[in-house]
């Protein structure tokens, strides 16, 4: 079966006074039907911009320079604004990292949910009163689905009347209102406490199973990926450096950056063992030299790394952007 989302050679740049920042440089992403794909990377790695590009949310001074974004076989870049609007929100939905700033503080939760249904739900009755009633019922049903108690009365409340975890649920509810085929969750739990984070992530997993949708989970937490994602893609400085089934990538990472990330997080199971920070910093994305972008921080670098490195197949389902990958690196 063909992939639900197939991004090829995506390049998104931002024109700034200091120069052109290439935030996403030649990224390929494939999201299969029903799977949960984890996107891991640090700030500035391009993980959020990649999916903002998919959603057509990149605004000036940013622009998509090159690439194809095929969703269900259609290139989203070739659609008109009107056609794109019909896809966005209905077939692909996105939740933002910070629910407090993403929700409109001046509108009730019910109004914000109704907005999505009005725009996209074609099954609603035409008559005004019946329509209003149907929207209200559907909204309450969705709030119930994401685990908000007494949804009927909470529809008339404002975002500030909810806790952080509840606001994140409301944003997920709005995203799920039209039962999308693909949910892009951008750091859905970064601002939340661990006990609440566990609730929200389980909610996303449950709903994914129930509705059979695909999920892209953007995160910086490898633990979250290990527990919730089928496959994982690791990004560094605007490029994909490694991709593969989660258990394989975490069990035996191919790229030195992935190894570095795994070695630098304190792990409860490995208590007593030292952590090994990755020295140095992420390179400036303006005028990057045409070499491996991890070169300056890599422990295994050689002179051959001073040439551009392409992503290559290193296993049946695995890819990595490293000349040493696939060889014995242990």
């Amino acid at each position: 079966m063909s992939a639900l989302l197939d991004v090829k050679g995506l390049r998104t740049v931002f024109e700034t006074r200091a120069g052109t920042v290439c935030a996403v440089d030649g990224v390929d992403v494939e999201v299969r039907r029903g799977e949960c794909l984890g996107i891991v990377g640090e700030s500035g790695s391009g993980k959020s911009v990649t999916f903002a590009s998919v959603m057509g949310l990149v605004r000036s001074p940013g622009r998509i320079d090159a690439g194809e974004i095929l969703f269900d076989g259609r290139d989203l870049r070739k659609l008109s604004q009107k056609e794109l609007r019909a896809v966005r929100g209905r077939d692909i939905a996105m939740t933002m990292q910070d629910a407090l700033t993403a929700l409109n503080p001046a509108l009730t939760v019910g109004v914000q949910l109704a907005e999505v249904l009005e725009a996209h739900d074609e099954t609603l009755p035409r008559g005004r009163r019946a329509r209003t009633r149907a929207i209200r019922e559907r909204s309450a049903e969705i709030l119930g689905l994401v685990g908000i108690p007494s949804p009927d009365s909470r529809l008339s409340q404002y975002p500030h009347e909810f806790s952080g975890g509840m606001r994140q649920r409301i944003m997920i509810a709005i995203a799920l209102a039209c039962r999308p085929k693909l949910l892009i969750a951008d750091e859905p739990t970064t601002a939340l406490d661990v006990t609440i984070q566990a609730q929200v992530l389980e909610l996303i997993s449950d709903i994914r199973a129930k509705l059979g949708m695909s999920v892209v989970l953007i995160t910086h937490d490898l633990g979250v990926v290990a527990e919730h994602c089928d496959r994982v893609m690791v990004m560094y400085a605007g490029q994909v450096v490694e991709e593969g089934p989660t258990t394989e990538v975490i069990g035996s990472p191919s790229h030195p950056y992935t190894r570095g990330l795994l070695g630098s997080i304190p792990r409860l199971a490995l208590r007593g063992q030292p952590i090994h920070p990755i020295e140095g910093q992420v390179p400036d994305l303006i005028d990057l030299p045409a070499q491996c972008r991890f070169y300056s921080r890599c422990a295994d670098r050689t002179d051959a790394c001073l040439t551009p490195i392409a992503v290559r197949q290193v296993g049946p389902h695995r890819k990595a952007r490293c000349i040493l990958a696939g060889e014995d690196t242990q």
Partner: peptide, 10 residues
Amino acid sequence: MSAVPDVDHP
């Protein structure tokens, strides 16, 4: 402790 997402015991 059980809520912490764990790389080692997914």
